[in-house]
């Protein structure tokens, strides 16, 4: 192992956990993000401004507030949390699944925004053309709308992944900072910087975080380029 990157097993656990939480949060929120973004881009309904505001709320609220709101809703003794625990045996408080929820909630506005913009940019006359060719609403969406929105979906998923990976405030407030269960890279770095002499170890994790983020950025750039090239005919 290089002297530059000398991670302890606990560091590796935090790295793996961060990746798992960010990947799962992105994948779980993606279908909801696509559905909500399409709804907001295409339909006018009563209460739309409110739905809009609620979705974008995590973007403007202090993350600690979002985490606290999650805690008082989904905590073990909170109304929703107690119901889920009692009827479905689902407990998310202080579990990695809770971190998935907080990361997902924080990432959701970015996901929805990117996808919504790309859906709004689609030429609807193409969907009309598909309808005259016999495509009902479902197949029209799957064969025309989704592929045409793909660059935006990739960009949104990437933003969501990055946000989930870097999430700190809401997660630590909601599920705390338990090594091996909820301690992500950010939380581990924070913990190390609170310990005298922990700076060197923190730097190791910082390097890993930079590498992961760079890799994710480059991968998404490459994917988006390919998707755009496919759309415009190569």
């Amino acid at each position: 192992m290089t002297p530059l990157l000398n991670l302890t097993p606990q560091d590796w656990t935090a790295v793996a956990l961060s990746l798992r939480i960010a990947v799962v949060a992105t994948l779980v929120t993606l279908p909801f993000g696509i559905a909500i973004a399409t709804l907001l881009a295409r339909k006018d309904f009563w209460g739309k401004p409110l739905v809009d505001a609620v979705i974008y709320l995590p973007l403007v609220l202090p993350p600690v507030v979002t985490g606290y709101l999650l805690l008082i809703m989904l905590g073990r003794h909170a109304p929703v949390g107690a119901f889920l625990a009692e009827h479905f045996g689902i407990v998310v408080a202080f579990r990695w699944t809770g971190a998935v929820i907080s990361c997902g909630v924080m990432a959701f506005p970015l996901l929805v925004r990117a996808i919504r913009l790309s859906v709004e940019a689609i030429d609807r006359r193409l969907e009309d053309a598909a309808a005259t060719l016999g495509a009902g609403p479902f197949w029209n969406f799957v064969t025309i709308t989704l592929p045409l929105a793909l660059p935006g979906i990739i960009a949104g998923a990437m933003l969501a992944f990055a946000r989930a990976l870097g999430e700190f405030g809401a997660t630590i407030t909601f599920v705390s900072n338990i090594p091996g269960e909820t301690q992500t890279i950010s939380a581990a770095i924070y913990t190390l910087t609170q310990v005298p002499g922990g700076d060197a170890a923190a730097l190791q994790l910082v390097i890993v975080a930079v590498l992961i983020s760079l890799g994710a950025l480059m991968a998404s750039e490459w994917l988006a380029r390919r998707a755009t090239a496919r759309l415009h005919g190569a």
Binding site: D123, R125, L126, D128, A129, A131, T132, L133, G134, L231
Partner: peptide
């Protein structure tokens, strides 16, 4: 519209940009 089986040719063509010509024809 999708149940009327009326073929349309529009002024601007409106071919699907993400599909090849063959797949446009097969759509």
């Amino acid at each position: 519209a999708w149940r009327r089986r009326i073929g349309c040719v529009f002024q601007e063509g409106r071919l699907f940009p993400h599909l090849s010509v063959k797949h446009n024809l097969d759509y």
